[in-house]
Amino acid sequence: MNTNIQIQNNTSVIITDCRRIIECDEVMVRFETSKLLITIFGKNLRINDFLSGGLEVYGEIESIEMRGHKK
């Protein structure tokens, strides 16, 4: 399954396929999709959790880090 990531300015990131939230606080959100491990850094980060498996991270986003999934 492919993961779609939609970035709106530096205020919001919407991910369509979030399998698991690994870590989450005000400055960093790390989660796992089917193929990637994504870490979002910023300030005052908040999460909106969609029951469809989607996730919205919003706040003052500074950087997004993506790594291939370890199998």
Binding site: I21, C24, E26, I47
Partner: peptide
């Protein structure tokens, strides 16, 4: 907390404006 957050996702408990501090 992180396991709890994922358990909420698995059990279809919709969380809005969530954050950890």
């Amino acid at each position: 907390l992180n396991k709890f957050i994922n358990a909420l996702r698995v059990n279809s408990v919709e969380c809005r404006s969530s954050y950890t501090k």
